[in-house]
Simulated scan of single mutants.
Amino acid sequence: MIFLYLFITFFQIGLFGFGGGYGMLSLIQSEVVHRHHWMTTGEFTDIVAISQMTPGPIGINSATYCGYTAVHNAGYSGFMAVLGSLTATFALILPSLILMIAICKLFMKYMKTQTVHDIFAGLRPAVVGLLGAATLLLMTPDNFGTPSLTPWQFWISCFLFAATAVGTWKFKINPIRMIVYCAFAGLLLLY
């Protein structure tokens, strides 16, 4: 039964997840952590970190790892957990595949009309809002710590967050390098 719920959940996320993978993160977290309780916030945070470091789109990577973790946490293992990964991944990309095939011919015919331009102008603020929501949802005590309980972790996390933002925006440092630098900093903090 979990496979059916996985398919429906990730199909809905794929259907309504505008803004790419980062825009989908808030929807994925809302469904898999808060609504279905398939995993904890800490597990989801780990999934996001792994999804960012592995090649491929973050939304698809997150769906793959969430499918595996959800089925594994439900008591299945081995091939069944892999089947959970495949189910969640396929369900996430299926709406895009269907919509792109259906819209492609219409878009090519009507792409220069004012209505199409107005639709895209209306979607832009929604995409920015989803990206902002994804950022805010990941700023939790699990990720940053708290100033009262774990001040060392909190201030180091805030510094890494600010350094990454400034490094990529102001100094145009390659985001891949910033990921490596922050991973190295995280390894140093383990010791």
Rank of each mutant, 00 (worst) to 15 (best):
M1W: 10
F3C: 01
T9S: 13
T9V: 09
G14D: 11
G14T: 09
G20N: 04
G23K: 06
L25F: 04
L27P: 02
I28Y: 03
E31C: 08
H36F: 14
M39A: 00
M39C: 00
M39G: 01
T40F: 07
T41H: 11
T41I: 13
G42M: 07
E43C: 08
V48T: 08
A49S: 14
S51Y: 02
Q52K: 06
Q52E: 13
P57D: 04
G59F: 07
I60E: 10
T64V: 11
T64R: 05
Y65L: 13
C66Q: 03
T69Q: 08
T69R: 09
V71S: 00
V71Q: 02
A81C: 12
V82S: 02
S85Y: 00
T87V: 06
F90H: 05
L92A: 14
L92G: 07
L94R: 02
S96Y: 07
S96M: 01
L97W: 10
L97D: 02
L99P: 02
M100W: 11
I101C: 13
I101P: 10
A102H: 11
C104D: 14
L106E: 13
M111L: 05
Q114P: 09
Q114G: 10
T115D: 09
I119T: 04
F120T: 04
L123D: 09
L123I: 15
R124C: 01
V127H: 03
L131C: 08
M139D: 00
M139I: 11
T140V: 07
N143L: 13
F144T: 11
G145D: 10
T146M: 11
T150N: 03
W152A: 15
F154H: 08
I156H: 08
C158G: 10
C158K: 01
A162W: 09
A163Y: 10
V166W: 06
T168R: 10
K170I: 15
I173K: 07
N174Q: 07
P175Y: 05
I176H: 02
R177T: 15
I179R: 04
V180L: 00
V180A: 01
C182R: 00
F184P: 05
F184I: 15
A185G: 08
G186Y: 04
L188C: 13
L190A: 14
Y191C: 11
